[in-house]
Every structure is written in C-alpha cells, then in structure tokens.
Design a protein around this nucleic acid. Sequence first.
DNA 1: CAAAAGTGTTTATTATATAAACAGTATATC
DNA 2: GATATACTGTTTATATAATAAACACTTTTG
Lengths: 287, 287
Amino acid sequence: MRKDDGLERETDRKTHDETDHEAVKKLPPGVALSWGLVKQSRRGPKGELSIPQIVEAAIAIADKDGLSAVSMSRVAAALGFTAMSLYRYISGKDELLLLMQDAVCDIPIPPEEETDADWRASMREYVRASIHIIRKHPWFVDIPISGVPITPNNLRIVDWALRLLRNFPLNDYEKMSIVLLVSSYARACGMIMRDMERAIRAGTSPGAFSGLEYTAALKQLVTAERFPDLYPVVMSGAYTGENESDNTVGNDFDFGLERILDGIEFYLASKMRKDSDKNKQAPKAKT
Amino acid sequence: MRKDDGLERETDRKTHDETDHEAVKKLPPGVALSWGLVKQSRRGPKGELSIPQIVEAAIAIADKDGLSAVSMSRVAAALGFTAMSLYRYISGKDELLLLMQDAVCDIPIPPEEETDADWRASMREYVRASIHIIRKHPWFVDIPISGVPITPNNLRIVDWALRLLRNFPLNDYEKMSIVLLVSSYARACGMIMRDMERAIRAGTSPGAFSGLEYTAALKQLVTAERFPDLYPVVMSGAYTGENESDNTVGNDFDFGLERILDGIEFYLASKMRKDSDKNKQAPKAKT
DNA sequence: CAAAAGTGTTTATTATATAAACAGTATATC
DNA sequence: GATATACTGTTTATATAATAAACACTTTTG
C-alpha cells in the first residue's frame, strides 16, 4: 500500500510527499484515506483498531439493518470500543460513509481477454455487476452522489467501463457520456431492485412489490378523466405489475438496457458512416 | 373530490366508503393524505394550520437550506407554532417528506395538442421538465425512492409520459419500461446537475465542479498501470471536464438522451417491420 | 348543558454526532 | 536510560433531532 520503496533519499522523499500533499490536500475529506494516503507516525501506542476493520464493521451493520442503523456508537460497540475511539481513525461519519462506499466497489474486474469478443455482452456484464453491488449492499444508493467518482475502487469500475469502449471510434467526451449513460441506468435499476428485495425481506408477500399492494386503491383513485393515459395501464394491471411472473421485473430492466445499447450501436454506425464519407478509407478501429 | 353524489342510500354509502377505506387503508402513510383522503371531522376547534401550509413552509426551508434543515421545529417555527403542533396534521416526518415530494410534482403539463407533432421533441421536453423539478428543488432526489409512484401529482407526470407513447405500437409493459428508462435517465442527470449547481452556490468557482478541483490529485493517483483505460481520459482532462465550456455538461446529458431516443426509435422500427411481416397490412397506430 | 373530539402547548425521553479534557503508553531524542 | 512527544482509548458534556404523554382549552354534537 505504501509507495515509498526506501530507495529515495530523505530530501527526495520530502519533496515527493509535499507535491503529493498539495494536490491531495484539496481532495474532499476521506478521499485521501481511501487512496491509502495517510500519516504513518511511529510514536504512541499502536492502534488496536484499523480503518479497514471499522469500515468492515460498518458495512456489516448497514447490510443487516440499513444505513440508518450505522451510528458511530453502534459501529464502535460492534468492535468492542466506545464511539469516540473511532475518531482517532476517521474524522467523522461522512468519511466513514465514503470509505464504505469505496470498499464495496472493490469487486473482481473480469480479465481483459474476455472483453473484446462481444461488446454488448460485456456491457450487460458491466451493468449486472454494478447492480450486484447495490443488491448486495442495499444502502449503497442511500448515500447521495457527491460528484464524479474519485475513490480508487470506484475508479477501477470506471476504468473497466472505459475498457469496453477502448476500440470504439469515440473521443474521450463521448466515451464518458456513454459511461455516464450506462452507469446511471444501472444505478436507477439497482435502486428499484433493491427496493423490491427490501420489501420482500420486510415481509411483503413475494412479488407484491412495485405497488401491487396498492393496485386496488389505485384502481379507485386513478380515473380516466384525470389520468387518461395512465388509466388503461393501471386497469390492465401493467402499472403495478399484476400479471408479471417474479423475474419479469428484471426483464423490464433488460428491455431498457437493450434500448440503450441499440442507441449506442446506432450512434457508432452513423458516426462510422460519416467518417467513411469524409476520409476514403474508414478508420474502423484504433487498435 | 367526494364521489358520493347524494343519491345513494345510507347503506350503499357505507358500503362504498368501506370499500374505499379497505383499499386506501393499505396505502403507505401519507399517500392517502396526498390524495386528499382525510377525515373531515366537524368537532373541536378549527385548525389554525393546514397541510398545504405546512408542506409549503417545509419546501421553502428545503429549497433554501437543504433537506437536512427541515426539522419539525423549524417548519413549525416558520409558521409561528411549536413543533408538536404539526403532529395534529401529519403523523411524522416521513409523511411530510412524501407530501413535499408530491407537491413539487405539481407542474404544468403541456396541453395535449402540442404533443403528437414530434415525439422526440416531446420526450426532450418531458425530460427537461423532470430535470427542472430537481434543479428547482435540489432536495428532491435526496429523498430515496420508496417504490413506484403512487401519489397524484407524480402520477400525472407518469400520465404525461404515457401520453407521448399513446400511438406507439407497444403494449403496456413496453410503455412502462420506456417510461422507466427515460425517467431514470432524467433523474440521474438531474441529480448531477443539482450537485453542480449546489457546489457552485457553495462557493466553488464556476465550472470547477465535476472534479475539476481534484484534477491535479487525480493525475498523480491514476496511474497507467492500475487504470489503463481511465489514465488517458484523466490525463486529457476529459474526466474532470477540464476543457469544457460551462454548458457542456448539459450537452453531455443531451448526448445520452439522444442515444436513448435513438434506441427507442430503433426498437419501434424493428417492431413495426416484424408486424408488417406477420400481418399483411401493418397496424401503424391505434387511434 | 354535557360529552366528545380536536386543538396547540409544555415537558420529558431517547438518540444522535461530536467537542474537550483526561489518563495511559509507546517511541524519539537527549 | 530519562523525558518530552505524539498518539491511544475513555469519560464527560453539549447540542439537536423526533416524538410520546399529559395538559388546558375550544367547538361541535346529542
């Protein structure tokens, strides 16, 4: 984890640290920690706790009882310490949340070889993996997005997404736009799936998520006059998924994803057509 | 608002009310309120407050100081009452949040005539309106989604979205999937725009959102070995939007939306092709 | 008029994050 | 080795939440 390999002389190390410091200092609190860039002082008693330990405990609590159950005192208690002891390691709860978020982004990235074959399949796999994080850690999307990802594990996922677009005739901005598009969709779908599974676990009869419980009420409330186009959809039961089998919700998401992939494919095709109009020989792929 | 037209006999009315009640009772707390289905008792002193008043005050506070500033006591204080007085109108804070959410969904829906002309333009308008809610009320997306929309104003927006698809050769499930797709994208984009504007208002230099401040740090942290495909994007400055003019972020979102619309269009075309293969005369539009 | 139902308030309870002061411990430097 | 220093985990205290319970008052209903 430590970059210092011991070969640099004292002065070099200092300069290097300071350069790092200036840029890194501007990072939001906690981000530096996530990159493992922390003071490593030798004096004083060794800490009995550690950041990974704290984060792990917090994640376990959040997985079990939700994000609201994650309080400093409960995390500390789970480790056999007092709430205040945590502040020796992290500066506050926000930092803990950020570290939790990055920690669960530490997923296995598929090896590069498998990627190139079928980009649509790869994209589906990417979306599936993104959704998997949310389903495994339902609290993940309860933490508001504070900006572009800048923590290491999160960035590895972005790196993976970009890899899938590597050989596409797109500039960096187009690539980022597509990553944004696909990731946003994954997030939105993951959120809804999360809600579904949460409801089922909370005792809602299986398949009764997505408003199925409220179907009867909605059929009384949604009138044809006030909701001309929603009315038939509610009445047919499609709105609340009355006639769907259990896993059809997943199919809904698959449907949307395929539309997005179609859109991307369409854009690539039209762009390559344009390119081959301009230049005589079309530059199909960069590598 | 009352369905009872006075012609039914007492027994009929009772039965009817109970039917309403049974179905409506199952609605989550607050949803019934949002539909205006509340006890209307005559005894006791008239309330000096009202639900719309409370919700309005809460929204004003949230718009100004964020969702975390919305406390029962602050809302009450803004109206000149004590915190506990609010509990005579709503059962708790969750209910207040739900009512706030529905209240800001009360947006002008464009008249039907303007819709049919250009469905892509209409869709763009729909997305723009959805995003506008989020930008005007940045706290909107801080409230987690608890399921399919079931409050009246929110459903009117869904109704609007469905109207845009009315004449498409799609079944209800396909329509809902497309609404989900477009709405999710709008939400995701709105969130990011919200963050951007929030950061700018908080003093971040204009255009320095989206990680621009962290560019220097990222260029040190993102190595070519660890992030082979992200590396060039960070280095070119595209990742943190270094070379973008102010409104390019919006253009990013436009890009993704156009891909989604392309995808929908592609699907429609391929489906109609299939239909015309099956039946001799293609049923182009239902109405 | 009396009962009932509803109003806003005061008071109290429980949780929360976190600041501040404290006593103990391991290291660095003399 | 002695001692200052920097660090450890703890105790105590503060401020702010949501909201339950008991209270006094008001208006309608029977």
